[in-house]
């Protein structure tokens, strides 16, 4: 009897109720949807504080953004899972950590009131809020990632600084990125991506969504299994183009500065 089992993927969303600032829930929906369309069975599970869970059960781990107080709230629970998560990434596990989640996946985050929240050190980076009187990094962002644009919105008080050997996710075309100074955005370790681009970054960046899926399938089913059938992405491409336009038309001055 020859039959090929349908592929399946497990997506775990860490703290879906606490770290869900501005549309982060759309990322899980994008992965789910793109699997469905290809006959890949996707299950999405939320992981809350205190839940019995091991990253080994997951193929993709998502963590979203929160305000300082929510980050403080999940911090101890996340720290407890640090060893498991680092091991998972070491074993090529796929991660997308956005905004507040990205900050807590570095060594630590110092909040606006000066309180230091230890992170899990998955990224060799530190984040610090310069204080309530300093302006936040807010606006549309365009990042150049492996020769393609990734579009989104950023809104973070904290600034992230990568240590020397830590690779960024991409280069800032327009926007602040990690700290508004060094032109770098996010961080990447193996198959773990950290970024400040929040608000459902995957739906309008389907190439990034598919990369996460391909990496996860490859890890689970071997290198030949990761050929993803193309999908009709016309709506996503239009949204991508529109966001690109919004970012570039509102930031001519910033662009001028960067490329002057």
């Amino acid at each position: 009897m020859s039959h090929v089992d349908a592929q399946s993927l497990h997506v775990a969303v860490l703290y879906p109720d606490l770290l869900n600032l501005y549309g982060d829930r759309g990322n899980a929906r994008a992965l789910e949807r793109r699997c469905e369309a290809r006959g890949i069975e996707a299950t999405v599970t939320g992981v809350d504080i205190g839940d019995e869970w091991s990253p080994e059960d997951a193929d993709i781990v998502l963590v979203g953004g929160g305000q300082d107080r929510e980050q403080r709230r999940v911090q101890a629970d996340l720290e407890r899972r640090g060893d498991d998560l680092r091991q998972y990434v070491d074993d090529d596990g796929v991660v997308l950590a956005v905004c507040g989640g990205f900050q807590l996946f570095g060594h630590h985050y110092r909040g606006w009131d000066g309180e230091v929240m230890p992170g899990i050190g998955l990224f060799d980076a530190v984040a610090a809020h310069p204080g309530p009187k300093i302006a936040r990094c807010v606006g549309n962002v365009v990042v150049l990632w492996e020769g393609e644009t990734v579009v989104g919105f950023e809104n973070h008080g904290g600034r992230t600084y990568l240590n020397d050997n830590q690779a960024p996710f991409g280069d800032v075309v327009t926007g602040f990125g990690n700290n508004g100074g060094d032109g770098l955005e996010g961080a990447r370790v193996k198959n773990a991506f950290g970024t400040y681009l929040h608000g459902a970054v995957l739906p309008k960046n389907p190439h990034l969504a598919d990369r996460l899926l391909a990496l996860a399938l490859e890890r689970r089913y071997g290198p030949d299994s990761a050929d993803l059938a193309p999908l009709d992405d016309s709506a996503a491409r239009k949204a991508h183009a529109e966001a690109l336009h919004a970012a570039l038309s509102t930031s001519e001055s910033a662009l001028g500065r960067r490329f002057a």
Binding site: R29, P203, A235, K238, A239, E242
Partner: peptide, 22 residues
Amino acid sequence: GRRAADMALRLEYAGLPEPIEP
């Protein structure tokens, strides 16, 4: 609106009727 395409993508995900031509 200025972000019609973003809205259309969101509503497509929500399963609202097609065709949504922003």
